[in-house]
Structures are given as C-alpha cells and as structure tokens.
Write a protein that binds this DNA or RNA. Structure first.
Lengths: 204, 204
DNA sequence: ACATTTGTCAACCGTTTGGTTAAACTAAAT
DNA sequence: ATTTAGTTTAACCAAACGGTTGACAAATGT
C-alpha cells in the first residue's frame, strides 16, 4: 500500500519539523537539519511539502490544534466558573509539562507574523469567549464574584497559566532555582493557580 | 572631533539594530537591513561591532538593562508588599506600552539560548528575590496575607504583568477586540492587576 | 508482461548571507 | 606640508541556504 510508505515518511517529516521548528523557530530552522532528524533526503521535504513555508504552516496548524480543545474547555463547558478555572489550570499545566516548547512556539510565531492570527480567527474551531463573558457578567450581577470585566479575568487566567512556561528561563534566574525545583513549582501550580484566582474573585 | 562622528554612527547602528532585532529576532534579522535602516554601509556594522553575534549581544544587554531597574523596584524597595505590587504593575505597564517589542524580544532570545541566562545571572545588577521572599514569609506569619510561597506570588506578579503583551496577538483574537480596544484594556490593567493580586492575598 | 505512477536519492543551481579587503576620504597632530 | 589615525565606501568572497533536476527503484495498474 502506498499510503503506508508515504504516510510513515510524511509523518516522520512532520515530527522532525515539529521538533526543529518548535525549538528554533521558523527563521533559524534549517531544511537540512529537519531532513537529518527525519532520516531522509532533503528533497523529500519538498516532495511532500513543496516549500519551507508550507511545511512550517503544517507544523503550526498541527501545534495549534493541540491547544484549541483545551481552550474550548474553559469557554464552553457547562460548569461553574470556579470549576472551569480549576479544570483548565490543572489540565493545561499537565499538558504543557509534556510539551514544553509548544506555547512559546505559538506565541513567538504569532508575534512574528500578526496577520497569521486573522487566518486562524476565520476558522471554525477558533475559540471565542462570548459565552464565558456572559457567565462572568451574570455572576458579577448575582454578587457571587467581585466586579471584574470578563476580558480582564480571561487575560489573567491565560497569563497565570501560560507565562510561567514561556518565561521559564527568566523566572528560573530570578527565583534562583534549578530545573528540577522549577518543575516542581509548576506541578504545584496545577492547584495553586486556580486557588489564587478564585481567592481573588470569590465573594464569601 | 572624531568621537562625535563615531558616536553618532555607532549609536545610529545600535538604534537600528534594536529595531530590527526586536521585531524580527536574531535569526531573521539581516545585517543589510540594519545597515539600511541606520543609513550607512554594511561594512560599518562590522567596523563597530565585529560580528552579528556581538552586535546582537550589545542590543540585548541594552534592552535588558532597561528592564532590570523596574524589577529591583519591586524586590528591594523599602515599602509594603501591597505598595510594591501596585507600583510595579503601574510602572511596568506604562513602560511596556512605550516599548511594546521589548518583553517579547527578551523572552524569545532567552528561550532560544538558555545558557545566556547564566551569563546574566552572574552579573552584579541581576535581580534576586531573596529580600522579597523574606518579606512575604514574614507577612504570611503575621497573618497579613494568605499563606503563599513567595516564589509562586512572584511568578504570578510577573505573569499578570508581562504576558498580556507577549501574548497580545493571541489574546486579541480570543477576546475579539481591535488594537485600540486592546490597548485600552492594557491601560486599565495599570490598576486592575494590582487589585486582582491584592484581593487574592490580603486577609481583611 | 509491460507501462505508469509514486517514492527516493545524489548532485547541482542561483541567491542570499555574514564577513573581508583594500582603497578613498576626512580631519586633527606633527 | 606631511603624517597619522579614524571613518566610510564599493567590490568581493566563501559558505550556507532553499529549492530543482534527472536518474533510478519500487509499487501499482492493466
């Protein structure tokens, strides 16, 4: 079956490209290096993915689609705000501990090429916080949580979960701990982050 | 005076390099482009800063030294924890609104080259949170603030202040607002962030 | 069995890149 | 007036880069 053969090579390329692109970024990545890591000839990259740009886009889409479901969790689940925050923080941190280069890769390339976001937003699966906003506004009105704009709360949730990984090299320096200790700090954040947020917004 | 001449050219190069490096990153930056933006010949770059690597390091150091003072503010000031958090958030956000590419540049290059941090930590002006930690531990013991590890609190402060800028392209998409509205959200955060943190940790 | 498509590779190509060189220009110092 | 040191330029270079070509092998279809 041709699909078997081509599938293995094609996915070997994608895996290798993922590794290189995520670690080095689009500009610093080398086609030869990707080919070496995939254990194939450089021509194969162009055979399966015409150009560096297209290979990159395939990697980016694949990476982004791994994160989108996590976000829909917090936005569209039929649970209380507090549960959403707890579940998302725990799930997201567990996920990123397994894919440490992913968040930085996405953020980085989005900053490098802002028009890219427009393409993503246009796609159907792109998360939208309107439902979350509605829920927050409602709970504020009910006096369950402190007055806060849903947008600001959302930005806070994202910041507290994502930045500790993106800023890890810097934070490790400031806090002055080794890699192992820092990883333990991240483990602790699976519950720490939600507690911190809920303490801030919850009215007794 | 020859120093005048060289000074203007040298600083013109540094300014141009700053702009290009911060927007594109080390790998994607081109020496020719920097020369064009500085309005001089490409050879001048090598005349004043031997290599791309050295020019980059000069830019990075310059950028980093713009942020270090801000951090020492929160770490070593002789003020209450609450004041530190308020002052830092307000100052930092004001600063970054004027230099939007800076945080992303630093975080990005630090991720690309983790050994770089070690060099920075070794320098005398590199911030260290030991004093902040002492203060937090004390206030926890006194029952002024909720029990929290100083490291976690520090990571939270950094995250809430820095990430909204680094993750701006992504967050703009999620929150679904235009650039102007997003900037207003950032303005609001000058007080919003500190309120959010203090609400979380302060015991009435 | 034969023809056609698909997959793979080594060698090659044109361009771009960081970096060099040597000469020209400037202006202060002798 | 000549030297000297610093500054600037155009032309050049080797290496690295993304991408192409053509030959060949392995499947696949008829």
């Amino acid at each position: 079956m041709e699909t078997t053969k081509s599938n293995t090579t094609e996915s070997a390329i994608l895996d290798a490209a993922k590794g290189i692109f995520e670690r080095k970024g689009m500009a610093a990545a080398r086609m030869q290096e990707i080919a070496d890591e995939a254990g194939i000839n450089k021509s194969m990259l162009h055979y399966y993915y015409r150009s560096k740009q297209l290979l990159f886009e395939a990697v980016f889409k694949s990476a982004f689609s791994m994160l989108a479901p996590q976000l829909n969790e917090i936005i569209n689940a039929d649970t209380s705000i507090f549960e959403k925050i707890s579940n998302f923080s725990s799930n997201y941190i567990s996920f990123v501990l397994k894919h440490p280069y992913l968040p930085n890769f996405i953020i980085q390339e989005l900053n490098r090429n802002p028009d890219f976001v427009k393409k993503l937003v246009a796609e159907k699966n792109f998360p939208n916080i309107s439902k979350f906003k509605q829920q927050v506004d409602e709970k504020v009105k009910e006096g369950v949580i402190r007055p806060i704009k849903a947008e600001q709360l959302f930005v806070n949730i994202m910041s507290l979960n994502i930045f500790p990984f993106i800023g890890a090299p810097l934070l490790k320096g400031f806090v002055n701990v080794n890699d192992e200790t820092y990883k333990q700090l991240m483990e602790d954040r699976k519950t720490e982050v939600a507690d911190f947020i809920i303490n801030s917004i919850k009215l007794k």
